[in-house]
């Protein structure tokens, strides 16, 4: 080829630069919002990943670009920088937004059924299997007098 444009293939340097730009897109949030201390920042990110963005509802606040998620990211970093423990930061948000903000639901009266569901499903399945087995293994009821007579009649007719 090469005849149409006369241009050579893109240089390897250009390709490399293009590839290097992709990771930048993966990080949501402005760099100035991040904490300078990498240890605190990574703690804040871990906490943020456990918190639901209430606007988009299926993303964590670390993954969402919604305004409220940005505010909550800042708030988490503020609390972390102020010296709060991870649990205290989560409690702070949980106190305001309720269970729904936690991507991993807590175990309580309302969520008990949710957590117990795998065990219930498994147990139910096992019970169903055993019930079927027992039923098929059980002896059929003996024939009544009338049935025996009818059977004898049929056998006799068949033989004739």
């Amino acid at each position: 080829m090469g005849g149409v444009s006369g241009r050579a293939n893109p240089s390897p340097v250009l390709l490399l630069l293009l590839v290097l730009t992709f990771p930048a897109l993966a990080a949501v949030g402005r760099p100035e919002d991040r904490l300078a201390d990498p240890v605190l920042e990574s703690r804040a990110e871990t906490i943020g990943r456990e918190l639901r963005c209430m606007v988009c509802q299926n993303q964590s606040i670390e993954d969402s670009d919604a305004d409220l998620a940005r505010d909550l990211r800042r708030l988490v970093r503020e609390r972390v920088a102020a010296g709060d423990s991870d649990a205290a930061v989560v409690d702070f948000i949980h106190d305001r937004y309720g269970d729904y903000v936690l991507l991993k639901p807590p175990f309580n009266a309302v969520t008990a059924l949710l957590w117990a569901m795998p065990i219930i499903a498994l147990g139910g399945g096992l019970i169903a299997i055993f019930a079927r087995r027992r039923r098929s293994a059980a002896e059929p009821a003996p024939l009544t007098e009338a049935e025996r007579r009818r059977l004898a009649e049929l056998e006799r007719d068949g033989a004739a």
Partner: peptide, 12 residues
């Protein structure tokens, strides 16, 4: 700043 809204649990 929207900070009081967060204290109320407002999400929109």
């Amino acid at each position: 700043p929207g900070r009081v809204a967060i204290d109320w649990g407002v999400y929109g």
